[in-house]
């Protein structure tokens, strides 16, 4: 077991090096030289230029610069935003809870609805329900979610007025930031109705972000359930006279869930990149919107740091999923 964990962690290191090289290269590949940009329109003398380069460490060989960069990153220093003059790391930490809140709600929506639909479809194989679920799943999988978000907004916010159009909270409430998670903070504050408002703001973005993972999970659950339902031990359970519900919930679902859990883990990357689109549509103040805005503002330290952090999170989550999968399934642990 220990060997498995160590080997899997060992595989992460080259990936992280690759990602960090990429992030490091980003700042060196952009057109235009940062020192000239900093000099502004007036330009600067050769000595000023040399001084500035020495201050920024740009006069050293490129590999020294890379190791300096990695050293800074490991100490949590990702540079300073050109626009807000705030450290990238602290900006990230302020905005990240909003993104977590959104992705967690989307993941819950995707898992609950996806699992339910997948199980129902497998149990009623070939029936109307099965066909409906497969159609929903296929459509969901092909959905341009930025359009889906606009459609839902058009229907529920503009025409029916049930949910707010955008943002995370109504301006009429003043919520003290304790945890950064709006759902928790509104419960802690004594503003009446604030929690309901926070939930209302979350509903549409979560559905939009959860749609593609929901489709994938529904499809995977259906095929995995169908496979398990054809096994001998299910026939035995049936022959013993167990109720249908008991067979499905107790016997079939447990084994059917193993591949589904892997697929769910793989959706984390999809959720985080989908959050970029969803946050842009709903003006959700998270890291996705932050990243897109910094690209259009050419705020390169933010782009560099944000990408590195998001990629690191995805790599770590994938590692965690793999390790958990190894705990659940011994075959994975012992395979080379």
């Amino acid at each position: 077991m220990l060997y498995f964990i160590l080997r899997r962690i060992g595989m992460v290191i080259p990936t992280f090096i690759g990602v960090s090289l990429f992030a490091f290269a980003l700042i060196h590949l952009i057109p235009g030289d940062p020192v000239t940009v900093m000099g502004g329109e007036r330009g600067m003398t050769a000595t000023e230029r040399a001084e500035l380069e020495a201050m920024l460490g740009l006069d050293k060989p490129i590999w020294v610069q890379y190791f300096q960069y990695i050293g800074n990153v490991l100490q949590g220093d990702l540079g300073t935003s050109y626009v807000s003059r705030e450290p990238v790391m602290s900006e990230f930490l302020t905005l990240f809870p909003a993104t977590i809140e959104l992705t967690v709600c989307a993941a819950i929506f995707a898992s609950v609805v996806g699992l339910t639909l997948g199980i129902l479809a497998a149990v009623r194989r070939g029936g109307l329900l099965d066909h409906t679920v497969m159609t929903i799943s296929l459509t969901g999988y092909s959905m341009p979610i930025f359009w889906w978000g606009l459609l839902l907004m058009l229907l529920f916010s503009v025409n029916l007025g049930w949910t707010p159009v955008s943002g995370r909270m109504d301006v009429i409430y003043w919520i003290d930031e304790v945890t950064g998670f709006m759902l928790i903070d509104t419960l802690l504050s004594d503003e009446e109705g604030a929690f309901t408002a926070a939930v209302q703001h979350l509903i549409l973005p979560s559905i939009v972000l959860g749609t593609i993972p929901m489709a994938v999970i529904a499809r995977m659950t259906r095929s995995s359930m169908l496979e398990v339902l054809g096994e001998d031990y299910i026939r035995t359970a049936r022959a013993k006279g167990l109720s249908k519900r008991r067979i499905i919930v107790k016997h079939a679902l447990r084994n059917a869930l193993i591949p589904v859990i892997t697929v769910m883990g793989l959706q984390v990357g999809l959720l985080l990149s989908g959050a970029i689109l969803t946050e842009t549509i709903f003006a959700w103040p998270g890291i996705g919107k932050w990243l897109v805005e910094s690209i259009s503002r050419r705020d390169y330290p933010v782009v560099q740091g944000g990408l590195l952090l998001i990629a690191t999170i995805i790599i770590l989550v994938n590692l965690l999923v793999d390790l958990m999968y190894g705990v659940v399934n011994p075959r994975v642990r012992h395979s080379k």
Partner: peptide, 20 residues
């Protein structure tokens, strides 16, 4: 390494370098 990052995110990163 390329696969470990979601497609859209990676594409955004590359576009950030090359310009939209």
């Amino acid at each position: 390494i390329l696969l470990s990052m979601p497609a859209l995110l990676l594409a955004i990163a590359i576009v950030a370098i090359l310009g939209p």
